[in-house]
């Protein structure tokens, strides 16, 4: 707690990314893509979002810097998980990136209204998949004051 009684946001570790994804195939593709583009990231995976906020708060260590959140999961779906994460001020430092195959405007609006930091379409093609994931990670690492993960890696022309 801070002096004025507000709950302080926990510190985050920008080199850690938590992937909340029930599809094994998608989790594997995310791992393959990010290992290639950001070898220094530490990836963690969970297949369900039930009680995620409590699980995160239960650990003493720093929080992961980013959560990649699937929307369609059995049990607590992405919307519920998002709401639960945003209900906890201690988790305010988490960057929540919704990563889903839907492009429905209503879905996007709902996620942004519920406090998602990004809403990223999950493409079918792997090259594109890797490109958008890299774009999301680079964007947020830069926005949160971290140099790009692979400094000096060749510039894409």
């Amino acid at each position: 707690m801070t002096d004025d009684g507000r709950v302080a946001a926990r510190r985050v570790d920008l080199t850690r990314v938590l992937v909340v994804e029930d599809s094994e195939e998608d989790a594997e593709a995310i791992e393959r893509a990010l290992t290639r583009t950001h070898p220094a990231l530490r990836l963690e995976f969970t297949a369900h979002g039930d009680g995620l906020a409590e699980r995160l708060l239960g650990c003493d260590e720093e929080l992961p810097g980013m959560i990649l959140l699937d929307l369609n999961m059995p049990g607590a779906d992405g919307h519920k998980v998002l709401a639960a994460l945003r209900a906890r001020p201690e988790l305010a430092g988490l960057t929540v990136v919704v990563f889903t195959s839907s492009t429905a405007p209503a879905e996007v609006d709902a996620c942004y209204a519920a406090g998602a930091d990004s809403y990223i379409y999950k493409p079918v093609n792997f090259d594109l998949f890797r490109t958008v994931l890299k774009g999301a990670v680079d964007y947020w690492q830069q926005a949160k004051g971290q140099p790009p993960a692979a400094p000096g890696s060749p510039r894409v022309k």
Partner: peptide
């Protein structure tokens, strides 16, 4: 090595953009 990396990234970028156009 740098040249090769640039070319392969350019190739990947083009593949990704083709895929984007298709989707």
């Amino acid at each position: 090595s740098n040249q090769r990396i640039l070319e392969s990234q350019e190739h990947e970028r083009r593949q990704a953009m083709d895929a984007f156009l298709a989707e």
